[in-house]
Design a protein around this nucleic acid. Structure first.
Lengths: 187, 187
DNA sequence: CGCCGAGTTGAACTGAATCAAGAAACGTGG
DNA sequence: CCACGTTTCTTGATTCAGTTCAACTCGGCG
């Protein structure tokens, strides 16, 4: 719980009232490795803050399992698009390790956004930072080679290389497992 | 001006006070074709609503001119990332046709967000829709072939094919001009 | 043990980039 | 209004990063 407020304090300061209101709707959830938090193809009514553990957002593209996003401690997990739009999305979410999560319901957040200006600001800033990350990832996909993207991942999140199976990392980077294996092979 | 409020009314309703406050800071600007609205590499302190005309967001990647985004009537133009973060960005913005724009300054928006909850909500919803679009585009880049992406563009914005030079369309689609020309060639 | 999924390795294939000329369109000044 | 130079577009030949398909290895684990 305090981790959550630590994390969001980087975006905006919450007054005691807003903070209490948020605290009241957050729900702590322990989920063992392999728990399906959101089923692919459904609406994602909950966004999870990862306090401990590891999750991935994934979907199926022509029977292939694609990892779309990986959320480590201190970040959010969910189908952003579905959570924001309220429409179903092919993306699902599952834990890759035993995890402790803070669950925030879409409806609660909507309500708090309406009633607390500070929460609305927080939501805006969170979405903004999501958009900026997305832009970054888009640019990488556009212009960096497979090896460059892998190199960047190694630099920025070296722990993931050990914690996430190769196949999932590969699809996260937008390449096949074979290609990632070869990239590793040289050096 | 009314076009602007029409467009944002799809997101949230503004009370008369918020509306007046926004109106007060909007500035209409006529820009002939080829006007540089934001220079690449600078901070983008202004977001433009395109009332009439056409703009593109672009940058240079190894001396190649890349079109990152195209904004038609009724949409926004600018370096989202820079506008939101306040940091410089390689992306610049220029008009592709004689255009009429509504200019909104970052500082004004920040101020109004702080003072008017409704404006903050509007900002959040706008960023959300930006993120959703971005996700869509990311997925396309990931999985659709060059020809599929072009086909989609033809379907969704057929006017752009006539209004935007091939080279710019190509880089917008993430391919070379040669490839786009060939795609057009067959059929 | 022997199976099974995850990872590696190899060979052939492919979509798109690159390099290299031409052809067409475009606008600017004489 | 035409001629010329510049930019834009097309077409062809070659190359390359990454995919696909297929076989093989390795490390558990029932």
């Amino acid at each position: 719980m305090p981790e959550f407020f630590d994390a969001i304090s980087r975006f905006t300061a919450l007054g005691p009232e807003s903070r209490a209101a948020l605290e009241a709707v957050l729900e702590t959830r322990d989920a063992p490795r392999g728990t399906m938090l959101v089923r692919p193809g459904s609406v994602c009514p909950t966004i999870y803050f990862v306090e401990k553990g590891l999750t991935r957002t994934f979907y199926y593209k022509d029977d292939r399992d694609i990892t779309d996003w990986i959320s480590t401690e201190g970040s959010f997990a969910g189908s952003m698009v579905s959570f924001l739009s309220g429409y179903p999305d092919r993306r699902g979410v599952e834990t890759l390790e035993d995890s402790t999560l803070q669950a925030l319901q879409r409806e609660d957040l909507q309500r708090l956004c309406a009633s607390h200006h500070e929460v609305e600001r927080l939501a805006r800033l969170l979405v903004e930072s999501g958009l900026i990350q997305m832009q970054q990832r888009f640019d990488d996909l556009h212009f960096a080679t497979a090896a460059e993207r892998y190199g960047k991942l190694v630099q920025e999140q070296p722990d993931l290389i050990r914690r996430v199976p190769l196949g999932m990392l590969a699809s996260y980077l937008g390449i096949t497992p074979e290609t990632l294996s070869r990239i590793r092979g040289r050096r």
